[in-house]
Simulated scan of single mutants.
Amino acid sequence: MPVELTGSYLTLDDGRPAVRFTRTYDRPAARVWRFVTDPDESARWFPSRLEVEPRDGGTVRFSGDPRQADDTGTVLAADEPRHLAFTWGGDELRFDLDAVDARRTRFTLTQVLAEENAAARNGAGWEVCLLALDALARGEDHAGPHSGDAADWRRFYDAYLDAGIPSGAPVPGLDA
């Protein structure tokens, strides 16, 4: 079954590779901000439960991902409810929230990659995670990105490969 890819691969002005996703949610920016910064909210769609100190230099704690060890990152920039950037492993995650109007918010997630060959793997992962966030933003229950088997991720991954997105990074749970 074919899937629609919503992410894009790009090279930033400074030469670093990245994947980017944009959505518009029928929620005010303050509500979308909580999807990212509230630990209980993030656990429902993000690969890990996030505990964020939303201030420059704050700590981000990642826990509960069945495929990754618990870890910490550093907040690089925080401007509630518009922008949050932090380190995640060797990568950088950026969340930009722009009010379309009083009730709608444009959500942009950019993952700046330490390694270009992670683009297809990570792009597929974000597709699965953002399906969960999309459901939550609509007020629907969703069991989260780890709730099913790897079939959805695999379909997205294969589509990214078919699109020529850089690949080859190890896949936790699939590669030895």
Rank of each mutant, 00 (worst) to 15 (best):
E41C: 06
T72K: 03
E53R: 06
N122E: 12
V128R: 04
L131M: 11
G64P: 02
E92H: 07
W45Y: 01
L109D: 03
R104F: 02
D79S: 14
V128F: 05
E92Q: 15
D101F: 04
V100I: 15
D71M: 11
A69C: 02
W126F: 10
G139R: 11
E127T: 08
P39C: 03
D101S: 04
S48C: 13
F35H: 14
A119Y: 06
T108W: 02
E127V: 09
G125I: 11
T105Q: 05
D65K: 10
E53N: 04
E53Y: 00
A143W: 08
P54R: 08
A99W: 04
D40T: 10
P81T: 07
A135Y: 03
L130N: 10
F107S: 05
A99D: 14
P39E: 02
R121K: 13
T59N: 11
L136N: 04
V36A: 05
E41Q: 13
L133N: 11
A119P: 07
D98K: 14
A120R: 08
F46E: 03
D79P: 00
L130P: 11
D70R: 05
V32S: 04
A118G: 09
G57E: 10
F107T: 08
L113M: 01
A99F: 06
R82E: 14
G58I: 02
L109R: 04
G90S: 03
F95S: 00
E115G: 01
G125P: 05
R34N: 08
P81G: 07
A124R: 05
L76A: 03
L76V: 07
P47D: 07
W33L: 04
R49G: 08
D79F: 00
V36M: 04
G58P: 07
E140Q: 15
S63P: 06
V128L: 00
L130D: 10
D98S: 15
P28A: 12
R104H: 13
E140H: 14
V112W: 02
L113R: 05
D96S: 12
G57C: 11
R121H: 12
P81W: 01
D134G: 09
L93F: 14
R61A: 12
L76H: 01
V60K: 01
L109P: 03
L136H: 13
V36I: 11
D96N: 10
A137G: 09
G58K: 08
R103L: 14
R138E: 15
A114C: 00
C129I: 05
A30I: 10
G139A: 07
W33K: 06
P47M: 12
G64R: 02
E80N: 01
